[in-house]
Simulated scan of single mutants.
Amino acid sequence: MHTWTTTPITPDLLRGALDLERTERGLLPHRLPARARAQYTDPQLAMAESQPSGVRLAFRTRATAVELDTLPTKRAYTGMPPRPDGVYDLLVDGRLTDQAGAAGGDTLTIDMAAGTAENRPGPIATLRFTGLPDRAKDVEIWLPHNETTELVALRTDAPVEPEPDRGRRVWLHHGSSISHGSNAATPTTTWPALAASRGGAELVNLGLGGSALLDPFTARTIRDAPADLISLKIGINLVNADLMRLRAFTPAVHGFLDTVRDGHPTAPLLVVSPIHCPIHEHTPGPAAFDPAALRDGELRFRATGDPAERAAGKLTLTVIREELSRIVRQRAADDPNLHYLDGLRLYGEADSAELPLPDGLHPDAAAHRRIGERFAAFAFAADGPFAAGRG
């Protein structure tokens, strides 16, 4: 029988969130601050930034049992099989020890054909982790990377205190749904989480599904956030949203980098171009759902642009890689801490043949691991852009 102690969930118990919203039922972590969220109330962005990729509870305790009450928001798609519950990863002294899912919570039903969404309220869920070692230890509970999660209550059978600062460098990464963790199996196996673990860095993940669009409010968020290391993975969302042409893209990249540098003038800054994505290598966007796949209960994407439109300035992944490389070379003459990584080094054409993107856009769990390992091997190498002592 456990004697439970309830500990208020306060900001000093959370890592990876840039804002916390007090709701009627709990505490909702956000990965964009309120000022940024107010500047464009896009439902896709709102969903993405409230999904707590990289956000975790972190505390030190002798507790052998931990209970966490949460209110997740499940997503369901009309005509498609149910999505699995989001996964919570429990780490003890940095090692994965247990996993759980939260049954219950609200349900957001999305009809992609009709373009509608309906929210149905549900009950609070309780996760329980038992059998933890009876000693002082660091405990982390990583929240589901793909499931909006309100935190309601934390109970343990021994007191907790915030995890002490271990002196790890803070790595802030911004990217698309691939960085967010789409199709990764668990929150600690998204490619940024894997890379951070290998590099010994404290991750702040600003991978925002469908929303890596060079938004000025995102640049200002990065400018103002504490960070020792910064990486920006730019490209795929600009193509599949068909958001801008080359004339707008180049100044927008410069402006984004200028804003980040206003707050972090000497931090190692790594610009990463897109990984290989066959549908958009030479074909502009917009991307669209494949209606034939939807009829079969599958989710796949296709490119709907015309390759000939590249001559008129339409963006493809090959165009973006060429331009990002040129921009970084130009700026690096005055910015020795600015670096470039071709995304094809993380996942290229041969990888696509071996581990194809299941839905045409997003890597699977095995590909996430490969990308994370390759990123860490490049960025955190002794001579890499994130090597100790850089910046």
Rank of each mutant, 00 (worst) to 15 (best):
M1S: 15
M1L: 12
H2S: 15
H2G: 03
T5E: 13
T6Y: 05
T6H: 07
T10W: 08
D12I: 10
A17R: 10
A17V: 10
A17P: 04
L18T: 15
L18I: 07
R22F: 04
R22D: 13
T23N: 05
L27V: 13
D42Y: 00
L45S: 04
L45R: 14
G54R: 11
L57D: 02
A58P: 04
A63F: 10
A65T: 14
D69C: 08
T73A: 03
A76W: 02
G79M: 11
M80E: 07
M80K: 13
P81G: 03
P82F: 08
R83V: 12
R83S: 12
R95D: 12
L96D: 03
D98F: 03
D98M: 05
D106E: 13
D106H: 14
T109D: 04
A113V: 15
G122A: 10
G122H: 02
G122V: 08
P123K: 09
A125V: 11
T126V: 11
G131R: 03
A136K: 12
E140S: 09
L143F: 04
P144D: 09
P144E: 00
H145L: 05
T148P: 14
T156H: 02
E163I: 12
G167Y: 08
R169T: 05
V170K: 15
H173R: 02
H174Y: 11
G175R: 10
G175F: 00
S179V: 13
G181Y: 04
N183D: 13
G199L: 12
L203E: 09
V204E: 00
G207K: 07
G207D: 04
T218P: 06
D224E: 15
D224V: 06
A225Q: 11
P226Y: 08
L232F: 05
G235F: 09
I236P: 07
N237F: 09
L238W: 04
D242Q: 10
L243I: 09
R245F: 01
T250L: 06
P251H: 02
P251W: 10
G255D: 12
F256L: 01
T259E: 14
T259Y: 06
G263C: 08
H264M: 08
H264T: 11
L269N: 00
L269K: 00
V271I: 14
S273H: 06
S273E: 02
S273I: 05
S273L: 00
S273V: 06
S273C: 01
P274G: 07
I275T: 14
I275A: 10
C277M: 11
H280K: 03
H280G: 09
H282F: 09
A287H: 06
F289W: 13
A293S: 13
L294W: 10
G297C: 07
G305L: 08
P307V: 06
A308C: 02
R310Y: 03
K314F: 14
L317A: 06
T318I: 02
R326Y: 00
R329N: 01
L341P: 09
L344N: 03
R345Q: 13
L346D: 01
E349G: 00
D351F: 05
S352H: 15
S352E: 15
A353M: 11
E354R: 15
D359S: 07
G360Q: 04
A365P: 02
A366W: 03
A366T: 09
H368L: 11
R370V: 13
R370G: 01
G372R: 07
R374C: 05
F378K: 06
A379T: 05
F380W: 12
A382S: 14
D383I: 10
P385S: 02
A388N: 10
